[in-house]
Design a protein around this nucleic acid. Structure first.
Lengths: 214, 214
DNA sequence: TCCGGGTTTATACGATTGTATAAATGCACA
DNA sequence: TGTGCATTTATACAATCGTATAAACCCGGA
């Protein structure tokens, strides 16, 4: 592309942190697009706009890069979900409805996120570190949902004991997970607005309360 | 191991169909154990007890072998679920409860199955054939669940219209999927009997009926 | 018993992978 | 404006990947 007759390609220093996260982002992009086997050292470097050798300068091995990429993905997902809480209404019932609706509609529900999640799911049974991250993020989300459920039940005048709230949170979490997956993977069979309606309606039935349409 | 001083290793003819399915089983074992990247031609052949070249005699390429392995996995799962219906009681309420309980407890819920499912999930967005198989099995299971739900509601004296039954089936399917995943991946956080209790209780709340403990 | 044909093994090849090492470069600081 | 040093590139290497091809083998039918 008219890069001149020869010579070494130009480059700019970017700083350790920025370069690290750029490489991590490139790794996630590669995995999302073509699965783990597509995330080769050369493909990652090409997408990050650097040469392959640089990866080994910031990560002891490709395995370490992939592990850190998955950790960044997980923490990013939980942070997104946590910050979404701030934008929700204060009324406990509307709050729960809004939380549930957001969890199964775009941009939370999208094919890339599910592809990455499935990729990490494959590592969880084998890699203890991945397993720990998965358990932590799972329990974090579940606890947050349990809090919303408890407050909603209290506001509706039928508070539940701790054991019931916990069981409802487990069931609700599973419901959101499954709906999130199908709405992302098969959007033509589970449309976006339909997923929202179904999720809110199911939660209303689970808790035995009326939930406002978000 | 005392195989003699040299010579070609002994082997036996197995027949086309048997060898094909043996290679497919070996492929699934490899994927379940170490993910797709562990399912190399040599690893598959070693697990099947043959030499690598034989794979290319039965499959035009490794890609074709993997595709057929995933198809076999999917159809196997649906057949298992379908045949499980025969062993369930005739009473619609007990039948639904039993179906739900079986879906989230071993042997349906196990780490190997989830690992394979996650692996196939990664191919679904990219591979049209995998996408078609996934959609078919998903809709198949969902339709079966919708039938059970409709019959249970009818037996309980509060029949639902078609749209409601469909929405309940989608929600119930998502609930079973999510619980199946977590019970398989994190059995220490969602114990087996707890998953059964939660699932049946959640379905009772969803449908607004009393379900017998299976 | 032997022989034909499909099954299986053995070996090799090019491409791609992760990794290692040295040289060149851009940038902060004097 | 030069200079030190971390950053980045370039190149090379061994291992492993999927694939190709020819030879050896097992087994059923004559």
């Amino acid at each position: 592309m008219g890069a001149g007759m020869s010579g070494r390609r130009a480059f700019t220093h970017l700083g350790e942190d920025a370069r690290r996260s750029a490489l991590i982002d490139a790794t996630l992009d590669c995995i999302a697009e073509g699965g783990p086997q597509a995330a080769t050292v050369r493909a990652i470097a090409a997408r990050a706009g650097v040469t392959p050798g640089l990866i080994r300068h910031y990560f002891a091995s490709k395995e370490e890069l992939v592990a850190q990429a998955h950790e960044a993905l997980m923490t990013g997902l939980t942070e997104t979900s946590a910050s979404a809480l701030d934008a929700l209404p204060a009324d406990p019932l509307a709050r729960l409805a809004g939380f549930v609706a957001k969890a199964v509609t775009p941009p939370v529900a999208d094919a890339r996120a599910v592809a990455l999640w499935a990729a990490s799911m494959q590592l969880v049974p084998r890699d203890p570190a991945m397993r720990a991250v998965h358990a932590a993020t799972y329990l974090d989300f579940r606890d947050r949902l349990e809090g919303l459920i408890a407050e909603a039940l209290h506001a509706a005048g039928r508070p539940a004991d701790a054991a019931t709230a916990r069981r409802l949170a487990i069931a609700g979490n599973a419901l959101l997970d499954g709906l999130w997956i199908e709405a992302s993977v098969l959007p033509e069979h589970v449309a976006s607005d339909e997923a929202r309606t179904i999720a809110v309606d199911a939660f209303a039935r689970l808790l035995g309360v009326e939930l406002p349409a978000p």
